[in-house]
Design a protein around this nucleic acid. Structure first.
Length: 258
DNA sequence: ATGCCTGCTTGCAGCAGA
């Protein structure tokens, strides 16, 4: 079974591009981020006509997450907000049971500029996420956390690390929090399959970043201990980033034994 | 230090993204 995470950067602007990719790739499960669409503007019928069940949590202008499942059935929703802050109205997390997996789809805050209130929000969000993930990490149920983490885990995950040390995606506090998450026992699918490769999942629209391969690895697929034994392969559909009207992220996938 | 590009807004410039 193939599960993909894809930050589409606007499902409205991306729809023709996205439907083409979906029909060519036919993944079993898709986690989307940055829908940039209110709940009622999500293109539900187009996605169902493409052969997918879907649940989503939209938001006007920004954020927004969705989980798609190939076939007639919708993912069985567990929650659509991260616990522990009813004041937080940003649509950044949705969780469901799909094909025997528990799938958490996340869009972690960017946090720039740092320091500042946006960075504080990012770190608070990470603490809430770490707390929730602790329960999932030790679950006997197979769990995958998939999404745009907005975290560059290590120096090898960015084209020029020295330029990113003050950025919210790479600051010490961000990497330290991500490290604590990983210490719960999560498996980084892409790094496990490709221990020595340079892997990017995002290339800025600025300065011909894709042409120069000046990218970041910030989209991640984390497996809990129950699931990690089923990891077969993982990769990035980086050619999709070169399409006309592409998102600045590329689809990032994992293959799991059924 | 800023803009470079792109998507979204009841918009027509400003914000956010990373």
């Amino acid at each position: 079974m193939k599960l993909v995470t894809y930050n589409v950067n606007g499902i409205g602007a991306r729809l023709p591009n996205f439907l083409r990719w979906l029909s060519e790739t036919a993944p079993d499960i898709v986690c989307l981020q940055e829908l940039k669409a209110p709940q009622e503007k999500f293109p539900e019928s187009a996605i169902r006509e493409a052969g997918y069940g879907v649940i989503w949590h939209g938001q006007k202008s920004w954020n927004g997450v969705a989980i798609l499942a190939r076939g007639k059935d919708d993912p069985v929703e567990i929650r659509r907000v991260l616990p522990d802050d009813p004041e937080d109205l940003q649509s950044r997390y949705i969780e469901a049971n799909v094909r025997g997996l528990l799938v958490g789809c996340l869009y972690l805050p960017n946090g720039n500029p740092a320091p500042g209130p946006k960075f504080d929000y990012k770190l608070r969000w990470m603490e809430r996420f770490i707390k929730h993930a602790a329960e999932l990490a030790s679950s006997t149920e197979p769990v995958i956390l998939a999404g745009d983490f907005n975290v560059i885990p290590t120096e090898r995950d960015v084209y020029k690390p020295e330029r990113w040390v003050d950025d919210a995606l790479f600051r010490v506090e961000t990497r330290e929090a991500f490290g604590r998450l990983m210490q719960q026992g999560w498996t980084d699918s892409l790094r496990t399959i490709h221990p020595d490769a340079t892997i990017f999942t995002f290339w800025d629209y600025f300065r011909n970043a894709y042409g120069r391969d000046a990218g970041l690895r910030i989209d991640h697929l984390l497996l809990n201990k129950t699931l990690r034994g089923r990891l077969v392969s993982a990769g990035v559909d980086r050619a999709v980033r070169g399409w006309e009207k592409a998102s600045d992220h590329a689809p990032t996938w994992v293959e799991l034994r059924d």
